[in-house]
Design a protein around this nucleic acid. Structure first.
Lengths: 152, 152
DNA sequence: GGCAATTAGTGGCATATACCACTAATTGAT
DNA sequence: ATCAATTAGTGGTATATGCCACTAATTGCC
């Protein structure tokens, strides 16, 4: 059976990354569930919080996320009153984002749950290993990946 | 400015994983674009190919993906005629999946591009580092992450 | 000053992915 | 044989994310 000897998906960096992300995402989501936020939303609120009324473009850049994707992701948070936006007075193209008071409370609640999730995860994986994984992830996120040379 | 000294998102395992996934996903997607497939689709076709007419549940389990999510992801591939499904005669609850001839051709085309993407990526990151990253990702994907102990 | 080029966001569309409620088929226990 | 419990998928709904075409605001250059 030749097919059985083919390399599994274990060889594709992208596939492995996605697979692990699904797994861990579900875990963090589960733990955060009581707050009503998804892990992505908690992360986004946090990112907004630690920024100084960041512009959308700045957030998108930090998160290596498409600007329009950020816009879409922001919508439920605005709808639910956790976040608000306003035009930068110095450059009206720029839209800045901040937490509402209610958003701050919600972030606080979510962060407690996040700490639990994070802690337990690190206990299971090992603090050292988790840190080196994050470092490796940051490295590849920082790569300057030009497209591969045309079909040489 | 106290906020500037707060830990960045760099500390959250989940956030870092997602961030890196977005980055690498875009890269693989770019390289695969000429085939008309997204990297996720190429990965799914490959997974189906190396399986022996796998059941949907089996595919979902391999990929650590929700069964219904797999169903949705499969739809465009079926619509485009790359994949077909059929009921398992021994257990009609089970739906098995296989590539169509056209799907096989398309996978072949995509795999050539994938090899380019993979190769270039590994050249940039280092074969060793990439392999150890994948191993770490596989490890965490294999974790048995029970929910963290209630608010101790 | 005026217009071309650039920059920041938006809205539409498509895929990716999850959860839930529901159906159909099977299995198990009596 | 029967019927409750389990298993495999489906469909709906919601978020996550990307690309593209488009608009508005700015910047640069003459």
């Amino acid at each position: 059976m030749p097919r059985d000897s083919l390399p599994g998906l274990t060889l594709c960096n992208n596939a492995m990354l996605r697979r692990a992300t699904r797994k861990i995402g579900q875990y963090y989501d589960d733990v955060l569930a009581p707050s009503g936020l998804k892990a992505t939303q908690q992360g986004l609120l946090y990112q907004i919080h630690i920024g100084d009324e960041p512009a959308m473009g700045a957030i998108a850049a930090s998160l290596i996320m498409d600007l329009s994707a950020l816009g879409h992701t922001l919508k439920p948070l605005i709808r639910d009153g956790y976040v608000e936006t306003f035009a930068d007075p110095d450059d009206r193209r720029v839209k800045r984002v901040r937490l509402t008071p209610s958003g701050l409370v919600k972030l606080d609640e979510a962060m407690r749950l996040w700490r639990r999730a994070q802690q337990h995860f690190e206990d299971r994986v090992g603090k050292k290993k988790a840190a080196s994984l994050r470092e490796a992830l940051d490295d590849i996120a920082s790569l300057d990946l030009d497209p591969p040379p045309a079909t040489l």
